[in-house]
Amino acid sequence: MTRHSEQDTTDTDRDEVIVIGAGAAGLSAGLTLARARRRVTVIDGGAPRNAPAAGIHGLIAAEGISPAEYVARGRAEVTGYGGRLIDGQVDRITRDDDGFTIALDDGTTLRSRTVLVATGVRDDLPSIPGLHRHWGTAILHCPYCHGWEARDKRIGILATGPLSWMQALMFHQWSDDVVLLANGVDFSSDDLATLDRVGVQVRTGLVEEVFDDPDGALAGVRLVGGSAVDLDAIAMHSRIHANTEILAGLGVSVEENEFGTYLAADSDGRTGVPGLWAAGNIRDQMAQVTSSAADGVFVAARLNMDLIFTDAGRPVTPPREPVRR
């Protein structure tokens, strides 16, 4: 078997692995595979989900690093070990007995034995005026990602479903001034009693708009009827959609739960399509940067082991049971 200590392929040569997506999962997978001396290409479509955020938090030894700097460092590390990076958008993926063909929207065509998809998810937000412009900055979704930055502030929890009361309960850990904006969602008497015991207020009525102060900072929400709730930050659950459109035609299974959609894969990252693997948010909706990066390493290691067994003429370990979301 020929080992590849550096990337010396052309666009017409076949990679061993193509990683689609250059966020935490994709770059970690690319780095792991490059260090395993695999011929690997990572395709970066740009526009990461966390781009609006000022910093990434809970990432040990890189606390507060900007998303752009994090990606830049990761890209440099992948190429430093001989991996190849391509900036581009994947238009379609097809599979045959010899592997996969990946067509980019600029006409470039790539070939690979296997594909690891790490294209993540996108957020579907309510169509409330003023909400979108603060998403990822003053409008948050994860207390562990941004709770410290919102500590002791006036936090409104914009209800988007029956589990929003739990988000209000969690954010109370970071501030004593938390209000649940019911926004037409009905909550059980037990849930409301729990919030009342810890001091979380509940405001009924539909949210009509998010309004700003004269400097453009988030200042609160206005309810239908005209009453206002002054706030410094808003937390909410978006509906999450896995970015699986480029996989159309491959026969993948896209599942749905109360949070949105995800790409079905087993606990090692194998999808139902031979040679197609998945890592990060696309298969784990709740993954943060840290867990997505770890998943990229884990799935890349399992993929590499499959290639080692295949090239040694040994049967590949049977897929594990699918992970139940």
Rank of each mutant, 00 (worst) to 15 (best):
S66T: 14
A279P: 02
L247W: 01
D44Y: 07
D306F: 03
A219H: 11
S175H: 07
G120I: 07
W277E: 01
P143L: 10
R151K: 13
L263V: 11
G225M: 04
W277H: 09
L247P: 08
S189V: 10
G107Y: 00
R75E: 08
I240K: 08
G249H: 00
A72F: 05
F100K: 01
D232F: 09
H146I: 06
A278P: 05
R84V: 07
Y70M: 12
C145H: 02
G216S: 03
V202F: 00
A294W: 14
N243H: 09
Q89E: 14
R222T: 13
L131S: 05
R3V: 14
V289T: 13
A103D: 06
N257H: 10
R222I: 08
I56P: 03
L303Y: 02
G147V: 05
W135C: 05
Q201E: 13
V316N: 12
I155H: 04
V229N: 06
D8M: 12
S253Y: 06
V115G: 06
E149F: 06
N281G: 06
I60R: 13
D13I: 01
I20N: 00
I240M: 11
A76R: 15
F309T: 10
I43K: 00
N183R: 05
I157L: 02
R75Y: 05
M166H: 08
L247Q: 02
R222W: 04
L163G: 10
E209N: 11
R154L: 02
G313H: 05
G269T: 06
I60Q: 14
T310G: 05
G80E: 08
E149N: 08
G136Y: 04
G130V: 11
G272L: 10
A29N: 14
I234Q: 11
R75I: 13
G147D: 02
A159F: 01
G251F: 03
E69S: 10
L169Q: 15
D91W: 01
R49Y: 03
P67D: 11
A61K: 12
R324H: 12
V121H: 03
D176P: 15
T79L: 09
S127Y: 07
L163N: 10
L231S: 04
V273M: 04
M286E: 04
T119A: 04
V200R: 02
V210I: 09
E63D: 07
P162G: 09
W148L: 06
V221L: 06
H237P: 12
G74K: 03
V297W: 12
D152K: 08
V207L: 02
S292Q: 11
G30Y: 00
I234F: 06
A235W: 03
S189L: 07
K153T: 05
T9K: 15
D98M: 05
W135S: 00
L195Q: 03
R320K: 12
M305T: 15
T261A: 12
S5G: 15
H172D: 07
I246P: 01
V323S: 09
D284N: 10
T114L: 13
A29G: 15
L218E: 02
R95N: 00
Q201Y: 07
N257R: 13
T108V: 13
E77G: 07
R283H: 01
E245N: 02
A53Y: 00
P322I: 06
P315M: 02
Q167I: 13
D87C: 13
T137Q: 15
